[in-house]
Design a protein around this nucleic acid. Structure first.
Lengths: 123, 123
DNA sequence: TATGTGTTATATCATTAGTATAACACATAA
DNA sequence: TTATGTGTTATACTAATGATATAACACATA
């Protein structure tokens, strides 16, 4: 899987990396049980520091997307807590949709955007 | 309108403040043409620094929610750029929905969440 | 024994968030 | 005119965060 990092973005590198991996899972470019590159390899590959990759991996582990061990490195392993996921989705979408609503995005248009995004996922 | 700030949140104070004001607009607690408190008053009221409020106001201005002048202070004034709003909505929802999709949130469930949020807005 | 995992510990530097004090330009009311 | 209230800018300081760098550790495996 190709990881694209924007060094000019105001978003932290480890957050960009974490988001890319989550998008990779949603697009089935990364599957349950699959191993990610080691923190050192990926860091070399992207051209960033090992600790930045480690920070992204640790965050993904804490958020329930990865398991880490010393045999196989970082392995995709989704920990599903649907109540938690629902709650987080609600919180994150509230501000996002409020912004849109202020700018005249209708409910129907928002539904359309949601469908387009889900269509783009290769589930 | 009541502004609630969580000093224990990891989210920056001026971002929380900006989000609260956007939510206020989406809930019609703040209307087009209405004046916000002066940066000094609001800062005193919340218990934060004047510059933090000013930072939130400047951001809201830059994002097209406010106009600022020396006569009336900060006045709600929505600058609608629908293309831009659409694009931003798409970008912000993509990662959010990817997270949900990884955690087993179905398209139908996401639509339901969206409806609940739009229902909560007093447009 | 050597190598490759994640992990932890320090240290350093740059940037950002928040506070503090002060002053400025401008509009308005007394 | 004078005083007051807007946003705005400038400067300085502290604390926290992001990113890098070097090094070492515990553990699994070839």
């Amino acid at each position: 899987m190709i990881i694209e990092i924007d060094f000019n973005s105001s978003e932290a590198l480890y957050i960009q990396l974490r988001n890319q991996i989550i998008l990779g899972i949603a697009n089935s470019k990364l599957s349950e049980g699959e191993s990610l590159p080691s923190v050192r390899d990926l860091a070399d590959n992207i051209g960033i520091n090992m600790h930045t990759v480690n920070k992204a991996y640790a965050l993904l582990k804490q958020e329930g997307y990865l398991k880490l061990d010393r045999r196989n490195g970082a392995v995709i392993c989704i920990d599903i807590d649907k109540y938690k996921a629902y709650k987080e989705l609600m919180e994150q979408m509230t501000v996002t949709l409020a912004k849109g609503a202020c700018k005249g995005i209708t409910r129907q248009e928002a539904h359309k955007v949601l469908d387009e995004i889900y269509d783009s996922f290769q589930l």
